[in-house]
Design a protein around this nucleic acid. Sequence first.
DNA 1: CTGATTTCTTTACCTATGTAAATGCTTCAC
DNA 2: GTGAAGCATTTACATAGGTAAAGAAATCAG
Lengths: 191, 191
Amino acid sequence: MDKLEKYFNQLSPLKSTTWDKVKPLFTKTHLQKGEHFIEQGQLASKIGFLESGIMRAFYRNDEGTEYNKHFFIENSFVGGYASLITGQPNIIIQQALSDCHLWVADFKQLSALYDTCPDLERVARRIAELYFVDKENREIEIILLDADKRYELFQKRFPQLEQLIAQYHIASYLGITPTQLSRIRKKLAQR
Amino acid sequence: MDKLEKYFNQLSPLKSTTWDKVKPLFTKTHLQKGEHFIEQGQLASKIGFLESGIMRAFYRNDEGTEYNKHFFIENSFVGGYASLITGQPNIIIQQALSDCHLWVADFKQLSALYDTCPDLERVARRIAELYFVDKENREIEIILLDADKRYELFQKRFPQLEQLIAQYHIASYLGITPTQLSRIRKKLAQR
DNA sequence: CTGATTTCTTTACCTATGTAAATGCTTCAC
DNA sequence: GTGAAGCATTTACATAGGTAAAGAAATCAG
């Protein structure tokens, strides 16, 4: 769990006494390819730190249309963040796209430490802030860039990923159909 | 500045000693219709609380295409949030769409209080978290809903706004052209 | 009130992307 | 290695939405 400690510390240094309280809350977990970390409709309760593997977060509407909101690679937090924060039922499914190793903690226990460990709450604040900035950029990309450009951005942002996951997952992340992604790939290959 | 105090407190209660430190950082400001609160390219330094009026946050790319990311109505924070957080130059312009009354503070002075006032940092955390949830929902809407549905959502979310601002601002918020919005309005009127 | 300016709508045409179905191509279990 | 299942590509057609320009309506300055 060195990776987790490093991740925390680069956001904002944690006192060792805080880390001593945080550490025991996390237990090692394994997810097999295809398994879900969190389901739609339930209240989120746990937070995970992805040490290795690939996961996706996706939304599925009533008609069964899926949209891949995000891919997680190593050194990312997973969990129904919005549900944890708002206490509303979770609407985002998270699934392992490969075998995954995670450290998992109960979010209530973790956030209960905010009262006595302001340095931990600071980390939480920074995470929320950075997540927001991330989303803001993505929003602009979605609105202002066409799918060709978003595809190129995806390739830059997740260089390794394209080889490891299915095309239709990438298409869903880009907000288009596999058909359209195939057309785009053809066009780019011809240049 | 009662509204500001109320706003803080409903996110997470502030100690009165904290409020005593926060309050003097804010000074009253007026923006005329059309004035900018923050420009593209500069480092954000101030944060404002919109007491009355309407503002918009928009992105403008190299070709001059604008995208209205957000409308602010009374009781909202304005300011180059991403720039304040990351220290990178601001890319989002914020402009008054009507005469506006704001309370404005220097963000560095405000965030410097986090060290001594954990209750203030908690408010900051909650704001960041809620902003994130907001963006997450908007992302899903943009990808999965067509413009007709997004328009109806806009009308529900900002009931008063449609009368007060130009159609092309709404179109830009929806990520479409005024032409398309006009078509949608025509279609909806015929039902 | 009147002319000028801005905004909204309409039209004609074009492009990106969706849908559905057929065809290949991989991969994986056995 | 072989067959089945899943995946990617292609094709034909349909639709949402863009662009440009013109016309209609609303707003504003004097």
